[in-house]
């Protein structure tokens, strides 16, 4: 009897504090975001209920938001199409114990531990039009006389693509490598006995058995692309233009620079819906096509 009551108290004291923190600082504000998004509010005076007007404005053709979501998709798929094959190629070769595999594995991952802000500054220096700029110095060696403004607003997004590839490839490589190492060696032995070539083995054993991890990788790419903020913010000095806004930077500048709290929150709600959709679709895909082994 006493034991039961002690246990109840224990559960309460252990589960209570984390649950309360999570409810007050994550669930409650997440819920409030939906309320805010239905108002017009400058953050000081009383909010005015305006129904779905913010969303109407967001989805009007030619709005900054629609351009922003385009930029998010650009920053997801253009680097993604380079990253995934590259990471697979690296992971495969490292898995095959290519000469120097350990060194490659360790160094390719380097950029992932550095903060995204420091990476943005590093690439500002690489792209710099001053004497310091690594790439403009290279161009000079090839005879270009005038430095090229890589990070100008109208093509900043292209300049960010190599930065994302440089940063993220190591992460996906490590992810894929872990999954390749989980595939039992007996599968390959059996295939070899049947005369399968290495490329056969890769396409018919390795890749299909990695399906789950590949899907996870795509989800990470999409979610990361949808939330993209740091590098744009730093490279644009806190003032992105409609040419460079992503959903997250648009949200920030609408709320904290223009004081359109309702509109900015509506942007964040859209961001949430996109992240949710991407995650649910991928979970669905994983369940349907999962290969058991």
């Amino acid at each position: 009897m006493k034991r039961g009551r002690e246990q109840k108290l224990f559960i309460l004291t252990f589960l209570g504090p984390p649950l309360a923190l999570y409810a007050v600082f994550v669930l409650l504000p997440a819920f409030n975001a939906f309320r805010y998004s239905l108002t017009r509010w400058d953050g000081l005076s009383a909010p005015v209920w305006i129904g779905l007007s913010n969303f109407h404005k967001i989805l009007t053709s030619g709005s900054t938001f629609l351009k922003a979501i385009e930029h998010n998709l650009f920053l997801t798929f253009v680097p993604g199409l380079i990253i995934l094959p590259l990471a697979l190629f690296f992971a495969y070769n490292i898995h095959q114990r290519v000469f120097g595999a350990r060194l490659f594995r360790i160094t390719f991952f380097f950029p992932n531990v550095i903060s995204s802000v420091a990476i943005a500054l590093l690439w500002i220096l690489i792209y710099s039009t001053t004497n310091v700029g690594l790439l403009n110095n290279l161009l000079k060696m090839f005879g270009y006389r005038h430095p090229y403004a890589f990070t100008a607003s109208d093509h900043l997004l292209w300049a960010i693509v190599p930065m994302i590839v440089w940063t993220a490839t190591g992460f996906y490589m490590v992810l894929f490598l872990a999954s390749m190492e989980n595939i039992p060696e007996t599968f390959y032995e059996a295939a070899r006995l049947d005369g399968a070539t290495p490329s056969h083995q890769f396409w018919h054993i390795t890749l299909p058995l990695m399906w789950d991890v590949l899907t996870t990788g795509v989800v990470f790419l999409v979610v990361g692309g949808l939330k993209f903020f740091d590098a744009i913010w730093v490279m644009e000095n806190g003032h992105p233009t409609p040419d460079t806004h992503t959903m997250a930077t648009l949200m920030y500048s609408e709320v904290f620079q223009e004081y359109n709290v309702g509109y900015g929150t509506a942007v964040s709600v859209m961001l949430f819906l996109f992240v949710l959709a991407a995650t649910l679709i991928s979970l669905r895909l994983m369940r349907r096509e999962r290969l058991e082994y």
């Binding site: 409650l28 997440a30 409030n32 709320v255 961001l271």
Partner: peptide, 24 residues
């Protein structure tokens, strides 16, 4: 139910929470 509630948090991007939290 509580476990699932925690799992929901994995789907919430922190950008959604940011603005209301600021005023909260």
């Amino acid at each position: 139910a509580i476990y699932l509630l925690f799992l929901c948090g994995l789907l919430i991007p922190m950008q959604l929470v940011l603005i209301p939290l600021f005023f909260q």
